[in-house]
Write a protein that binds this DNA or RNA. Structure first.
Lengths: 133, 133
DNA sequence: CTCTGTGCAAAGCGTTTGCAAACGA
DNA sequence: TCGTTTGCAAACGCTTTGCACAGAG
């Protein structure tokens, strides 16, 4: 019994092959749109339905196993929940990467200046990656 | 003939009352979702259709008169294009505010460290505003 | 064995499109 | 007047729902 099986059961969710595969795909690919996920899932489960993908993605979002990343000009992607981080997206190839940045200075500035208690900072840097210049 | 009439004509767009009102509403409210915009527009134009709102929003996006702001947990809002800035959103009252932050240090770090040419930085700070604590 | 999850089909909802009439320039 | 825009209705595409059967525990 692997980690993800345990994780699912801890939340009273059955560890079905479909669910484990979704988690696995997100782990391997990092970030995936619903469409991309469906494309890879159907290779493994030829009769899987989009409804199953949606139901499980929503379930995993509710249980915070995964998170939605909203991107300018692109459809949302999903990723496994991990330590807080930012994203880069290449406008040429569409490749999304995680990047850990220290936003404390900014967060502190805003907290004091605007009296705004920050719980979360979502930063997306759009541009051109080194492979696309 | 006001500024916005001129702005529209410069792009070969007719300055219809509906268009001028949309721009005006965005100017006054700062940020609006499609629904919110429709609600205020229908007070002025009782027979306006959602199709007209969508067509004009898309047209103005293409002409970069306005910009879409994607927010975690909320539907997108639209704002008039102005100098680059970040956003705060209060998780209690939903109020969105602009905030001008110096992200140069971060942008430079990523540019050099990751060899990633940044053209745009979208930052959304979620939390609780001073009125909601 | 029981109860949850899957897959299918249908429904739902936000957004876009086609078209005739209205309107801006 | 001419070309663009509006408003309506229909179409579209993505997401959710209901239900019967399959499968996890």
């Amino acid at each position: 019994m692997n980690n993800y099986t345990q994780m699912l059961r801890n939340h009273n969710l059955k560890a079905t092959p479909q669910r484990l595969a979704i988690v696995d795909m997100l782990y391997m690919h990092g970030h995936m749109s619903i469409d991309a996920l469906y494309e890879v899932m159907i290779k493994k489960f030829s009769s899987i339905s989009l409804a199953t993908i949606y139901k499980n993605i929503n379930l995993m979002l509710e249980n915070t196993f995964i998170q939605e990343v909203k991107l300018p000009n692109y459809k949302s992607v999903y990723e496994l929940t991990k330590e807080s981080h930012s994203h880069t997206i290449c406008e040429k190839c569409g490749k999304i990467n995680d990047i850990i940045l220290d936003l404390n200075a900014i967060v502190n500035t805003v907290s004091t200046l605007k009296n705004f208690e920050i719980s979360k900072a979502d930063l997306v840097l759009s541009g051109v990656c080194k492979n696309c210049v």
